[in-house]
Design a protein around this nucleic acid. Structure first.
Lengths: 197, 197
DNA sequence: GAAAAAAAATGAACTAGTTTAAGATTTTTA
DNA sequence: TAAAAATCTTAAACTAGTTCATTTTTTTTC
């Protein structure tokens, strides 16, 4: 049986780390939920108990918290071929502190908590997939945590641009500022300064 | 067969997430290397290719990088019952950018890369253990990354003290500053200010 | 247990990043 | 396609955190 493009992408993503039989692929796909979401609408909001972990097949979303002043702090931008969600809430089933909002019309595949647990029972190989996926995410978050406390805002901007050249062009400067951890005004100054060179 | 205290601790740590038979415990323990290290000595240095992932059974270590000015930035403090190492170098087999130094005489159990790979072949259940371990680490690093860019140094200090009350008393103010991401001078000011209240 | 070394405290001058405010430009919506 | 809304730019005054220099206190070493 031939896979459609949407499922093709997620299967390729998984096949980078583990090998699946045709049967396992079908079984896995049957556990997924297809989700379409318009630009500027929420996939989830703070206070929700996270129902899904998501894989993005099309579009772009931002994952963020609001602090006590109402200032947003963006944790990640998720585009095609990325996984996202709020793992803490997904695992503990406690209310999330995160918002996830589409910055473009987007299409996602979601796996519910019940199906996630089922997946490990039915295809234990997925423990390995997630072990490797989380391991790699961990490496990049450890780096991000270190950069946040050791680099200047300008250095963080330059690295972001180098690491995610395609994402820079898809997001507003304001959102970039909320990711870098500075005000939009200072972001504007940095960009002017860096591009002047 | 009765386990000694050292192995007892690591088996209890693992048993929080997966169940092991006596045979599996013995098998696992046979893959570990016991390491003792004196205060102020290095477990590894930048440029090394990381040989092991470590579990601490006694003592305290700091994991840090040095920036181009020679300023240290501490990524984590590892004490009893913690796992540490440089995952990026361990996985990619590329030279590490981290130093790991004991701040107290310490005892560790190390698993080599070869044995780590062997472990998954011989006891596939360990994929699940590491999946859960990494998942939990990921949750706390995502939080740390967000705090680094959204909280003031004083707020980060207060949270560290609340989250790790035992560790605060085992480390120098200078090392705490390198973890929080500020100068020792400013750390001193914050502590004076917070304790005055 | 004295001397040396490291850590901590304090203060003054500085800089990276914030705040507030107002105008210019771009994007969205009807 | 015009009006409204959002984003971006610029600038002046401000604050969190740095730097550098000196002294005091604590820890380490012999």
């Amino acid at each position: 049986m031939k896979l459609d493009n949407t499922h093709q992408l997620i299967i390729e993503n998984i096949s980078r780390f583990i090998d699946l039989t045709e049967l396992e692929k079908q079984k896995y796909i049957s556990l997924l939920t297809e989700i379409k979401i318009d630009r500027k609408t929420f996939l989830m909001q703070a206070g929700d108990i996270t129902k899904y972990e998501y894989f993005i097949t099309k579009g772009c979303l931002k994952v963020y918290t609001l602090d006590e002043n109402g200032t947003p702090h963006i944790s990640m931008f998720a585009v095609e071929d990325y996984w996202t969600g709020d793992m803490a809430s997904f695992i503990t089933k406690e209310p999330s502190r995160y918002f996830i909002k589409a910055t473009e019309d987007s299409e996602l595949l979601g796996i519910s908590r019940a199906n996630y647990d089922l997946l490990f029972q039915q295809i234990p190989k997925f423990e390995r997939f997630y072990r490797i996926l989380y391991q790699r995410s961990l490496i990049s978050y450890i780096r991000r945590a270190n950069h946040g406390i050791s680099l200047t805002a300008e250095e963080r901007y330059i690295r972001f641009k180098k690491k995610y050249p395609k994402i820079v062009n898809r997001i507003t400067q304001k959102d970039l500022a909320a990711y870098i951890g500075i005000t939009p005004e200072f972001m504007s100054k940095i960009i002017t300064k860096v591009n002047r060179r």
